[in-house]
Design a binder for these strands. Structure first.
Length: 426
DNA sequence: TCTGGGGTCCTAGGACCC
DNA sequence: TCTGGGGTCCTAGGACCC
């Protein structure tokens, strides 16, 4: 009789068609029907129900290219609603935390969970339990892959997606090569378009072949990331679980316009608005920016109007999170890169070299700074209570005819009390 | 006509110094 | 007149992720 085994176990829990599943929560009529969710500006398809996938609608494809199939098959279309998805995501993560607090929230719809304290024998049952509890408490269906390393659990998850049970464990499997052989190289975590091309040229087409390639060869011909991936395929941990959420290093706010902008004044308004959003974001995390970048560009898909893309970085002597200062810097930068005669499609602001408030005090901090800080705080509080951009700066504009398109928005927003669905007791 | 947004990490190469 | 080469630091851009 063998003793109970407790090997390293990492689970990857991934919400199925997450944005679509969120929309379905509040709209039972679209269950079992083909549904897609669009990216900002109703540009691309970024989430598809299984029924939509079955129709051949591709991930990331521009909406207008799939419109024929969509209309013909009566596919339900939604503009994305990130405050809703963020809210549901937090509920899912809270539920997962009950199984182990060692959790890495990897993205809005994915988390890694350390399940090493469960025995090898019971691990699959634990997976099933997690899946059914999340479904019951949040209404979101998930797929779960469990293995010795993150990269392997990604693969297990990939396989689980196609299974009825939704749970796949690679723990205790004797000959993992038989499984890795069926995993295409471009489905391996960390292998993108370029690496796929490179590996194919060198006769590597599946995960097993990469796993069995000598590390020296990989390091010499590719880079350390690739060798890490190969090691992880061998079951050796190289990518640790990041359970503590670390402070971000940069913050970007950028948008495509609902219609092209040619006018300098409108571009100024857009940039001012993005600057305000970005400033508010870093303030909410008590961060300060040392560098500010502003960028503008025309569409890269229609060059008959001429392509133009440029950016300007401004380095500040003292890090700041003051909206007024940041807007001033970006508008200044914009003046330097704006060129007449182009149809601008997108613009954005990036705050980088972010640091903590603690090391921001210096010789030049003054009473004036204190006053500005309290002004910023009251603006943030007002906007939090009465909705974003209740208080703004005049430079951010009022009409905003260039705002993103959102023609398929559902009226749901769990952060908005008046939009909550009502349940009538009989 | 219409093609998202927000991140991280790595590396090659330039600037600079001795 | 001959014009080295190694080290460090920084950054822009590429690749990847969701």
């Amino acid at each position: 009789m063998s003793s109970i085994q407790y090997t390293k176990k990492i689970a990857l829990i991934d919400c199925n068609s997450f944005y679509v599943s969120c929309e379905r929560l509040f709209n039972p009529k679209i269950r079992k029907k083909p549904v897609v969710v669009l990216s900002n500006n109703d540009g691309c398809i970024i989430s598809r129900s299984n029924e939509a996938k079955a129709l051949g609608i591709k991930m990331g494809e521009p909406y207008f290219k799939e419109k024929n199939i969509i209309v013909k098959n009566n596919v339900q279309v939604f503009s994305s609603n990130y405050s809703l998805y963020g809210d549901i995501s937090r509920r899912v993560m809270r539920t997962l935390k009950r199984f182990n607090s060692d959790i890495e929230v990897y993205s809005i719809d994915e988390a890694f969970l350390d399940l090493s304290n469960f025995s090898d024998d019971e691990i699959e049952n634990v997976g099933n339990e997690i899946r059914s509890v999340v479904l019951k408490w949040t209404g979101i269906p998930t797929s779960i892959g469990i293995a010795k390393t993150k990269t392997l659990s990604k693969i297990a998850n990939h396989i689980a997606k196609k299974k009825q049970s939704g749970v796949v464990s690679l723990i205790g499997i004797k000959n993992i090569d038989l499984i890795l052989e069926k995993v295409e190289i471009n489905d391996v975590w960390g292998v993108g378009k370029q690496l796929t091309k490179f590996y194919n040229q060198n006769g590597i087409y599946n995960a097993k072949q990469l796993k069995n390639k000598p590390n020296t060869w990989i390091k010499k011909n590719s880079n350390v990331l690739s060798s890490r991936t190969a090691m992880e395929l061998r079951g050796i941990t190289c990518v640790n679980l990041e359970t503590k959420s670390s402070k971000r290093k940069s913050c970007v706010v950028s948008r495509s316009f609902g219609q092209r902008i040619e006018n300098f004044q409108e571009l100024r308004e857009a940039i001012a608005g993005y600057s305000l959003n970005a400033s508010e974001k870093i303030r909410s995390e008590s961060l300060f920016a040392k560098s500010i970048t502003v960028f503008i560009r025309t569409s890269s898909f229609q060059d008959r109007h001429g392509f133009y893309s440029n950016s300007k970085r401004i380095d500040l002597p003292i890090a700041t999170n003051n909206s007024i200062e940041i807007v001033k810097a970006t508008l200044n930068g914009l003046e330097g890169i704006f060129k007449n005669g182009y149809r601008y499609q997108k613009a954005g602001v990036m705050l980088s070299h972010l640091s903590d408030s603690t090391n921001n005090k210096n010789l030049f901090s003054s009473e004036r700074d204190e006053k500005i800080n309290s002004l910023m705080k009251s603006i943030d509080n007002t906007n939090y209570r009465y909705g974003r951009s209740t208080l703004s700066l005049a430079s951010a504009g009022v009409h905003k005819i260039w705002n993103s398109k959102r023609q398929h928005c559902s009226k749901i927003d769990t952060a908005d009390f008046y939009s909550l669905p009502t349940i009538k007791a009989i």
